[in-house]
Design a binder for these strands. Structure first.
Lengths: 342, 342
DNA sequence: CTTGAGTGTTGGAACGTTCCAATCGTTTCG
DNA sequence: CGAAACGATTGGAACGTTCCAACACTCAAG
């Protein structure tokens, strides 16, 4: 039940270990007869190459390590898909570790990968501080996805959230909205640029007096709270731009219980384009991030760094896309003021 | 920018490599002064142990490999959480690979782990045929999660889907339903036991004449199709048990467009208790699988097998839990001429 | 017939650890 | 005072590969 080694195979096939090694690496300077004998022996013994030994002597593993902060967010699944694809095409393999949004565990997850001597490291939306990425970048190329990381040795792939927010406001203004509020994501990553994008865009449309931004969060409850505080104070907005889809669902919940109709009374926009947003009972207008492309891009950056170390970091910023569904429409007719639900 | 080795550290600290090794492994037979010197040197050089070398000589990696079929299903995230937790507590680490529901890629994912010489392998809802698991089990303990795998060398952790389906029917019957239909999951794993559980339970309630099972699938579209065919032929059921949440959402979509109200006209039940099912606009009654526990259990099984190889496989079957929400209620009118259950 | 250039094949030296047996000081004790 | 016991430290032999230099052959050209 133990593992057969190259030597066992060599003995079985009646050749030297070197020849077995050559066959395993698909060398073309092996005679067909020896090749066959070796393959047969290998099969018989259930031989499996030992990656540890190979990594050891070759001084590289041909593996890219990916640290993911949280597998619960389906967002990451697509990113990882993109990574896997690009990494596989380049003849590398990828392995993942998780940190569950806990700094210490993320640090451990990264350490595990580095100790395994991955040839490159991709950190997807890390929660842990950037020191960890910088430290890692001392021994291996590192790319951070989803979190702007200004460091001279760490590449990054992010989404242009400011621009995404701008597209949302453009869409709402085009529909005729003016009183557009924002429920932000609190302290989470991505919150700040979305908020900034909101205010800038409002100003661009000459709506600086309508700017109204309240504290929310990236959770359903966060969205609910934000919406409640919006309804409790000041004039009711005709549209709300929420920090992400999950929070937007919380907003819808509040609006439903308040008897307000979406989008007749109020339009709601989320962010992330989760599959939930697409569900017909929600039909949430939202912003799609090119998740797959972000992953692919991240992989290409690490692979490029492995091939050809650069002295300056690359920072790729991809563009989001507005996805219009049923949660947005024209504001309640301005002539009649506010329409009431029966 | 290269990796420092134990020898570099030894030189820097003015001691032997063996001593450095002892310090790294937290031996207690090292004098405090040498320990400090070594740690300082290690820090200065940014030393990181080389897992490949260690694995090599120790003939074990202290790593558990996890192959996940599909990261898109949030179901798996919880399972992995459970695995990570149990594995970590036992002093092991875990690494993941994915196969994206493609047999060949799953096989590669498994091979990657085995070549890295993981000490144990957990396959979560593999799509690849069981031969792959059996083969792997020749060199390392293997546990399959979510798919019944009858093989003498492969452990498994599954959910009692038949029982889960039974709980659904019990709940519906208790509400007064008799005409309960089932939309199945097609050929996917888990489909068959849920269907069987449905029919058995119907019979148990003396409703064998009401049994009506149509082909659906584990996707939104699959559910929609199933519902359409239910509505197109025969008397309309007062309740529908759908193979999973996603398909149930497809069912809701059809009912909405047909102008049928849930649960007033018809009750709908899903399976899996995805976060989507909990969303207020859906409020789907569903069956929760103890995902976290399944992961933990799987980890405990591999770890036990590593410690103490068993000659016979263990098959753990966990119990699901009914989660009642707003998509189920009493049938439209009390069924005339028939007594309700007390 | 000798040389030179291929073909195939081979042993040996790494790679960075762990672990064992051996060594070197000290201290304790008879 | 010598031996024994102990604590701290050390060199060397693995572990399973890769890769290089070297080696046999065979065959063509000189």
């Amino acid at each position: 039940m133990k593992h057969a080694t190259i030597l066992d195979v060599a003995r079985e096939a009646g050749v030297s270990k070197s020849l077995v090694s050559l066959v395993m690496r698909d060398s073309d300077r092996v005679s067909p007869s020896s090749r066959e004998a070796v393959l047969e022996a290998a099969k018989k013994l259930g031989y499996r190459p030992n990656a540890a030994a190979r990594t050891m002597v070759r001084q590289r593993s041909s593996v890219i390590g990916v640290m993911v902060s949280d597998l619960h967010n389906p967002f990451f699944a697509d990113v990882i898909d993109g990574i896997d694809m690009a990494v596989g095409d380049a003849g590398y393999r990828s392995i993942l570790t998780t940190g569950n949004r806990v700094s210490d565990r993320e640090r451990l997850a990264v350490a595990t990968l580095l100790e395994m001597r991955v040839d490159g490291l991709i950190m997807v939306s890390p929660v842990v501080n950037r020191g960890c990425a910088i430290e890692a970048s001392e021994s291996v190329p590192v790319v951070v996805v989803g979190k702007a990381t200004r460091a001279p040795t760490v590449d990054s792939v992010t989404n242009d959230d400011r621009n995404g927010a701008g597209m949302v406001i453009d869409h709402l203004v085009e529909l005729g909205h003016r009183r557009i509020a924002h429920i932000d994501g609190g302290i989470g990553a991505g919150s700040q640029p979305r908020r900034t994008g909101y205010s800038r865009s409002m100003k661009r449309h000459g709506l600086e007096n309508e700017i109204r931004s309240v504290r929310g969060g990236f959770t359903e409850d966060g969205g609910s709270m934000g919406m409640q505080s919006l309804l409790a104070t000041g004039p009711r907005p005709t549209a709300v731009f929420v920090a992400n889809d999950l929070a937007a669902i919380g907003v819808l919940k509040v609006l439903d219980t308040e008897g307000l109709s979406v989008p007749d009374d109020i339009s709601v926009v989320g962010y992330d384009n989760t599959s939930m947003a697409a569900s017909h009972r929600l039909g949430l207008t939202t912003v799609d991030q090119p998740r797959h492309d972000m992953g692919r891009m991240a992989a290409e950056l690490v692979l490029a760094s492995i091939d050809q170390p650069r002295s300056t970091a690359s920072h790729a910023v991809l563009s989001p896309k507005l996805v219009i569904r049923e949660s947005t429409g024209p504001p309640p007719t301005s002539l009649e003021g506010e329409k009431r639900r029966p």
